[in-house]
Amino acid sequence: MEQVGLAATSEVTLLSLFLEAGFIVKLVMIGLVIASIWTWAIVVDKVMAYNKFKRQLDRFEDLFWSGQSLEELYRSLSDRKKNTGMSAIFLAAMQEWKKSFERGAKSPMGLQMRIDKAMDVSLSRESESLEARLGWLATIGSAAPFIGLFGTVIGIMTSFQAIAGSKSTNLAVVAPGIAEALLATAIGLLAAIPAVIAYNKFSADAAKLSGRMEGFADEFSGILSRQLDERQQMQAQQQAQQPVQQAPRQNIHPHAQSSGI
């Protein structure tokens, strides 16, 4: 049946290529298609998530620097079910601040440290969620070509064995098996190239966003630290004038830095 090879060349469709491949090659192809699906799922998810995240950051920064009282901001934010990004960091810091003052903390140095720690934890949690599943992209990007190559090598091996059996070295006999095996590499590259590009883009985006959050955390930490210092000074003055009087309720305000209330 030397016609087999010739007939295969005349009607090579993608489906026939796939169906004629061996078991391992089929498995590799299916795996690579799944990897591609997963890659694009992550890409779509990340694109949406990052856009949303950026919008939230912008909104929060507008809100934060709008001159609104931080107490009010805290109250409105803590009513919300889910807080991400800067608002989560802000809430973590404010919670720590409030807890410390409700229990009447004595050392402002310890308070400062605790607030910083709380913000760090919140920040790392946020950037972790930003970078979630990026590892998948990196893995697919680097491994998919090799997996495809593996499928190709197996396919060429089996097709050469088949050619040896047919006892003909006609190119018409040799070519279809190799073309079919090469499909595995093609799919591997098809999965890997978008994965690599997307990984590079998203890791850069994630770094940018977490940089923004870190900047906010530092700024906020600075504001709180100044407030603490001013508060301490005031307390010392008040204690010197009327030692029994309670400290008035503090209204922290981002724009009150220079005026000091």
């Binding site: 469709t13 993608l14 591609s36 699906i37 890659t39 694009w40 799922a41 779509v44 949406m48």
Partner: peptide
């Protein structure tokens, strides 16, 4: 996003199976 990706892949593969020939 997973379902979006799956649907798009299925569409592309179907198109390729039909239109890609030797």
């Amino acid at each position: 996003s997973l379902s979006i990706s799956t649907v798009v892949h299925a569409g592309l593969l179907g198109w390729a199976l039909v239109s890609f020939s030797a």
